[in-house]
């Protein structure tokens, strides 16, 4: 019995390579169907996905036709380990394909928001308390037809918008130590893949922001200005209107270079 299992194990181990490659061909096909890969990569990398699909397919065909049993190098245990590692990402890809980066990732990637020994509350000087009186519960909903300014465009041209009203949208996030009425609207900006995602966002201020939850998608209208945060003047929107939005599909959440 034991030797039969051993023989079977060796037999399967020697044939793992084509199966691993076939699994990757299927994974690429699945990612390309309905643009699922956009949860991880930027759209211009579709060609890269097709390239992976084609090469993995060619490798699989060659491995299947290359004769049996003689193909594998190493012990059968090593073959299982190699196959296991190569299949591991597929598990994670399937598990993560319908989620996006949110406030947790923002807290690890935002730059210039920490100053040892000081909380965000201490870092922000409120120059005009009257600016903080708007309560989001009283705000009228934003009209659907109006097109919001994309956050990256808004930040790149902040000087042009300063002093005027602007409509934009993104995810809401308020750090734990943020003072009442201060939060942030942000999105992630991707160059190649989600691993290099850089957050872009503006501070928003207005009374009643506490009723918003972190990672909630919002559309906000506010007056563009700059607030003193940690000794630097940072882009801040003084809220005039806010609307909670349903989360877009994962493949529409990121901004791409």
């Amino acid at each position: 019995m034991r030797s039969t299992i051993h023989i079977l194990e060796k037999w399967f181990a020697a044939r793992l390579l084509p199966w691993v490659l076939i699994a990757w061909v299927l994974a690429y096909g699945w990612l390309l169907e309905q643009d699922r890969y956009l949860a991880f990569l930027q759209p211009r990398f579709a060609g890269l996905m097709y390239m992976g699909l084609i090469i993995a397919g060619l490798f699989a065909l060659a491995a299947v036709s290359a004769g049996r049993g003689e193909r594998a190098h190493g012990s059968s245990h090593m073959q299982w380990i190699r196959a296991g590692f190569l299949l591991l990402p597929i598990l994670f890809i399937i598990g993560a394909h319908n989620t996006g980066l949110g406030g947790f990732a923002l807290s690890k990637r935002a730059l210039g928001t920490s100053m040892p020994g000081k909380s965000l509350k201490q870092k922000i000087e409120r120059d005009d308390p009257s600016l903080w009186t708007m309560d989001i519960k009283d705000l009228p909903p934003v009209e659907q037809e109006e097109k919001p300014v994309i956050l990256s465009k808004l930040l790149r041209n902040w000087e042009d918008y300063e002093g005027g009203e602007v409509l934009t949208e993104g995810m809401y996030y308020a750090p734990e130590d943020a003072p009442e009425g201060l939060g942030m609207v942000f999105r992630f900006y991707i160059t190649c893949c989600a691993a290099d995602a850089v957050p872009v966002g503006v501070f928003v201020k207005g009374k009643g922001l506490e009723s918003l939850k972190n990672d909630q998608w919002v559309r906000v209208r506010g007056v563009c200005g700059k607030e003193d945060v940690m000794g630097r003047k940072l882009p801040t929107l003084t809220l005039k209107e806010v609307q909670i939005l349903p989360a877009p599909d994962v493949n529409e959440q990121y901004l791409y270079f």
Binding site: W24, L31, Y37, A39, F40, L41, F45, L48, M49, M51, G52, I55, P89, F92, I93, G95, A96, H97, T99, G100, L101, G102, F104, A105, K108, C192, C193, A194, A195
Partner: peptide, 15 residues
């Protein structure tokens, strides 16, 4: 977040 980053690195590097 870890899963997304891990999957992204692999998906970008594999091709």
């Amino acid at each position: 977040t870890f899963s997304i980053i891990f999957s992204s690195i692999v998906l970008e590097a594999f091709p």
